[in-house]
Design a protein around this nucleic acid. Structure first.
Length: 343
DNA sequence: CAAACGTGGTC
DNA sequence: TGACCAAGTTT
């Protein structure tokens, strides 16, 4: 890895570091919808959507624009029904985020008379808002000097300071937050935090970073950037089989609404125990991941189907409006379109 | 503090 | 194909 030598690290010359980072950002920084507004609600929506979710997904698939059009302010979101809320979030995953975002809007409406709080502690107290998101809202919306550490910043800082310990634990996190606070540009917190995150997304990306073009390489201590940050052990993926029924009668298909659990409120193809259904005709099969599971979804024909409580026949027009997990929607489309073909 | 929580893209 | 990753928070 070719990489310029470190002259003074960021802590030794924080002002030089901040200047270089900001100069780069002001000329190269990207234009995102949430960078064009100072509406704290609009920024909160973007931050919650972007939790563990790539910008390309949020922007490219239109989630942010649609959500803001449908729920332009806390008042509109606070009044959202479960179905329309989840529909706006369908495909984004981590659906609890949507419910907590609505709850945050309700808190703003109820406890702050509809005016978004400008106080860090109050923002941190909103449902679904943790330390990162609170720092983001305070700095991006109000240009208040609050540090933030997300995946990007953790990567940038661990390389900058050549931190070779695992970054997952509490001690490492504390160290990262301390650095973020020490390096924060008190005079330009919005631009600085944006720049730090964007650096982590561009030059200081995961894997092989682009140190030659990095605007702050001369402040960077590490000689082995590709090795950092070090992460601890990950959760093991477990294989899982799901057996569901595709039943069609008079242009209607049988679906079940999930109640409780991870995707509560969403409609899925009705599930049956493997031993009961395994010998029925297999119409379609696909794999999808959900958290720590690698699921194989088997779609069977409806031989000997007995309906169960909570299962409802829906027309295809209705199905389009329902909230469904992407795997089920794709499986259903495949079965409807491809007939007997097994993908 | 470990585990749960979704999904799509990349190598 | 499978492991890893992406603007984290909650329990």
């Amino acid at each position: 890895m070719l990489k310029p030598r470190c002259e003074n690290d960021a802590l030794e010359d924080p002002d030089g570091f901040r200047r270089a980072l900001r100069a780069w950002f002001e000329s190269q920084g990207k234009d995102y919808p949430w960078r064009r507004t100072q509406d704290a609600y609009a920024i909160l929506v973007s931050e919650v959507m972007l939790q563990q979710t790539q910008i390309a997904t949020v922007l490219g698939r239109g989630f942010y624009a649609r959500f803001m059009e449908k729920f332009p302010d806390t008042r509109a979101l606070a009044a959202a029904e479960d179905d329309e809320l989840l529909k706006a979030w369908e495909g984004l995953g981590y659906y609890r985020r949507a419910r907590m975002l609505r709850e945050a809007a309700r808190v703003v409406e109820r406890d702050h008379a509809g005016a978004f709080p400008r106080d860090h502690a109050a923002v941190l107290g909103l449902p679904g808002v943790g330390r990162y998101t609170a720092g983001a809202v305070m700095s991006f919306a109000f240009d208040e000097a609050q540090p933030l550490v997300d995946g990007n910043v953790a990567r940038v800082l661990s390389r900058l300071m050549d931190f070779s310990g695992e970054i997952d634990g509490g001690k490492a996190q504390k160290q990262l937050w301390t650095w973020a606070e020490e390096l924060l540009d008190q005079a330009h917190p919005r631009a600085y935090n944006s720049a730090l995150m964007e650096l982590g997304q561009t030059h200081c990306r995961t894997g092989q970073p682009d140190c030659l073009e990095c605007p702050v390489s001369k402040f960077c201590r590490t000689r082995s950037p590709a090795e950092l940050p070090k992460k601890g052990r990950r959760v093991k993926v477990t294989a899982l089989d799901e057996h569901v029924v595709f039943a069609e009668r008079n242009g209607r298909v049988l679906l079940k609404k999930l109640e409780g659990g991870r995707r509560s409120g969403m409609w899925r193809l009705p599930e049956r125990p493997a031993d009961e259904i395994a010998c029925w005709a297999l119409l379609h099969q696909r794999k999808y991941g959900i958290t720590r599971y690698r699921v194989t979804l088997h779609v069977h024909g409806d031989e000997g189907l007995k309906e169960r409580a909570g299962e409802v026949w829906h027309s295809l027009d209705e199905v389009a409006e329902l909230v469904m997990p992407p795997a089920d929607r794709a499986a259903l489309a495949a079965v409807l379109g491809d007939g007997e073909e097994i993908a």
